[in-house]
Design a protein around this nucleic acid. Sequence first.
DNA 1: AAAAGGTGCTTAATCGTGTAAGCTGAGACG
DNA 2: CGTCTCAGCTTACACGATTAAGCACCTTTT
Lengths: 343, 343
Amino acid sequence: MPSENHRPTQEDVAREAGVSRAVVSYVINNRSGGKVRISERTRRRVLEVVQRLGYQPNVNARSLRTRRSQLIAVMVPDLTNPFYPLMIRGIQAAVEGSDYHIVVYDSDDSAAHERAFVDMMLRRHVDGVVLVSFHLDVEDVRRLTQAGIQTVGIGGRLRAAGIDTVATRERPAAREIVRYLISRGHRRIAHLAGPQDTPPGQLRIQGYHEALEEAGLRYEEALVRYGTFKPAGVAQLIDSMFAASAPEQRPTAVFAANDLMAIEAIRALGRLGMRVPEDVAVCGFDNIPAAELVTPSLTTIGQDCQRMGRLAGETLLERLGAGARAEPRHVSVPYLLIVRESA
Amino acid sequence: MPSENHRPTQEDVAREAGVSRAVVSYVINNRSGGKVRISERTRRRVLEVVQRLGYQPNVNARSLRTRRSQLIAVMVPDLTNPFYPLMIRGIQAAVEGSDYHIVVYDSDDSAAHERAFVDMMLRRHVDGVVLVSFHLDVEDVRRLTQAGIQTVGIGGRLRAAGIDTVATRERPAAREIVRYLISRGHRRIAHLAGPQDTPPGQLRIQGYHEALEEAGLRYEEALVRYGTFKPAGVAQLIDSMFAASAPEQRPTAVFAANDLMAIEAIRALGRLGMRVPEDVAVCGFDNIPAAELVTPSLTTIGQDCQRMGRLAGETLLERLGAGARAEPRHVSVPYLLIVRESA
DNA sequence: AAAAGGTGCTTAATCGTGTAAGCTGAGACG
DNA sequence: CGTCTCAGCTTACACGATTAAGCACCTTTT
């Protein structure tokens, strides 16, 4: 039996309860407040039938009619980076209790996927969007906003698109952790940077730069290597940093642009026979869960991603409720220097 | 400007292109094959207008009409467990290139959420579902299948519901890793078990049991503690295992029911002044990414979750294509003993 | 007793799409 | 010259819901 079934519709409920379809709709949506009144007796009877038949309203039909889908789309670059699931939890928490539901898109950090997802959001007629994007441009975002879709960006990249944003102040954060390294006596501090064409990559290198400058240290090209925010390739970068130069020219500390890279760096250093933190100090950025599990545990900058998610969710709900507010709002989430064993 | 916009519909495209709405629909869906033919000239003109107006079909309306949503829902218990994002990647990979899209639900391992998500799937009229569930029962699954929703379960728990399943053979896997511990000379092997009311918890403890029996070792209640698959509380369990007994009565190895617990166990042992693996060997189950990052790196059972995801996705697509096949199919995914430093 | 007002329904239009069935005009054919 | 065929459209209904407007009946007011 393929059980290609007839699922109950309002029609079925109405027939069974001996009322018109409209009554069923009014009852289900609790719209007894306006001009239309439904007697308590009928209401009960309808609800009983709904229960008995296991009726579930067809949200496609409903959205078609109401022009609202009660959907919030969340796009993240990489679900396998623990950072983002936590952020989603935050958004989830903000949305819980409202009538909205979230749907998650994992773009796998691909520009093509990101564009495709924007299309999907338009086709699905989602009401709101939370974007964590490294590839979309202002024009892509405009397609969303022009369609009347409320949009919140996480990370400052899309500030120019005129949407609300929630972000960590990455530059000061990067500056602070490099300052910390300096305060511990380090003078030759290397930076394992993220991609230069992404704002997180840029901001972290800027912060690095500023901290050096403050302390009167020279910025040396030789101390900077560009990676991808992912573990792959980090070992080679570390090799090239340490193998090439004379011992006294080697960095005594490495500031990695994120934790994944930092952890991989520690392993690469181990293979080179260097101990962390005795020979080289290492610190990261993000404070992913693994940061405290590795040995040595990782000194890093804690971004409260769950809170960022919650703020993004709340901001979005506010917009969705109040309609258009005057100006886009940009919220900063505090960061935290977390000192552990690695530096 | 709130830009509560008029989004283009087929109507708009039709008007602009000087044809009827139906033509637009036929062109968009490439339905020139049947009785209806559209001239190449018109086709081009329509597509040009579609492009120019940035028309995107409203999938709500479409699903309403066609009774197919092209949606596959994926429900997982915990997005923050790295295991599941990988599985989702696998499903994603299987679905890529088909006309289906996936939507992810994170149930946060709550029975209430799981039920609520089943409702959502029914309301959204998703075409297929991949379930990783610890709480749904056969009746819940029947609600899905009765509504004509193709369903695939990951993990053997829902085999009784008559749906296709994809699973690792956890019992043999558990047996194998305990066998390995025995082969390394361990005789007093403790088990940090998962919840007794979940199949993964049960199967792993059964495998543990079988391996002991094979080797002629006695199963001792005192060597087993029940946890939750999460790090919280593990420290106390370890304390109670090791603090209480005389040194020669202590276990020399601990088999944890999953990696998260194993990692936490290693840390707890460290606080008790015991070295891993010299004083106590520890092994886990799952092979999450952190397993190779921690020190000592974790000996564990590798479940190829990405492959499980892909298989689940493929199975589902097959069902969705072919309609009803005769019998539910149960696929086993190979596991792998991964020996690292911790045991 | 007629008018007014309120309660509790029903009727019917509408959202944007897919698709079967009908229509039209031009060329082929007897 | 009338009929047939067929390519290439258009017409019209259906999907399942929301919601404004209308209607019947009863009670209260004038």
